[in-house]
Simulated scan of single mutants.
Amino acid sequence: MEPLRTHQGLVYPLNRSNIDTDQIIPKQFLKRIERSGFGQFLFYHWRFDDAGNPRPDFSLNDPKYKGASILVAGENFGCGSSREHAPWAVQDFGFKIVIAPSFADIFKNNCVKNGILAIQASEDQVQTIMKNAEAREYCLTVNLEDQVVSDNEGFSLSFDIAPYPKEMLLNGWDEIGVTLTYEDKIEQYELLYK
């Protein structure tokens, strides 16, 4: 995974609450065993009609959000089943940051394990970001080291993150990467018991 320290990106507002993992990535697309290729199916039933044509009335299909890397959504984002495919789809589509008033715990943990920063912000802060992103092309800068989200117009919010997931994201480590930081100790242990 790539380290995440400071990220500046275009914001995509998805003003809906209780978006579950079945809406993020529908079950029929879960047949792959690799982590890549799921982005094309993100929010599939909202983005495409039954014939597979893009729905012009769904905002993510609007060209003004092309290349967005910060997703802002309503409360309880990622609820539902505990499939890891949901953050895979979010990441593969190009989102590096998700901001919402609340997240399902399993989804939030799966985000960290896959290099996505899930930021919990107040409802008022989320609505401010959404209104700005709905009105125009709107970018945010996310500084993980300082735990601050800001724009160039005076908006700023601080967010909390536990030390362990913060270290994982800052260093680009998944759980195997964390284990490998102890490789020399593991080798020493193995030498003792050969």
Rank of each mutant, 00 (worst) to 15 (best):
D184G: 00
D62V: 09
Y189Q: 10
P63M: 08
F77C: 06
D92E: 04
G37C: 12
F107L: 07
F159Q: 02
L157I: 15
S36V: 14
D184Y: 01
A51K: 15
I129Q: 02
L169G: 02
E134Y: 07
F93H: 14
V90I: 15
D92F: 04
I119R: 03
Y12S: 00
R83G: 03
S82Y: 13
F48C: 05
A118L: 07
C111L: 03
D146I: 05
A68D: 10
W46Q: 12
E123C: 03
F95H: 08
D146M: 10
L192W: 09
H45T: 14
S102Y: 10
I176R: 09
E84K: 08
R55Y: 06
D50M: 11
E145Y: 02
W173T: 02
V126H: 00
E153A: 13
L14A: 00
R16V: 11
V98T: 07
Q147Y: 01
S150K: 14
L4K: 05
V126D: 00
V98N: 01
F41N: 12
I176S: 00
Y138Q: 03
P13I: 10
E145K: 11
H45D: 15
D57C: 05
K64V: 15
F41I: 11
R16E: 04
T181P: 11
W88A: 01
Q40F: 00
F29I: 12
E75K: 15
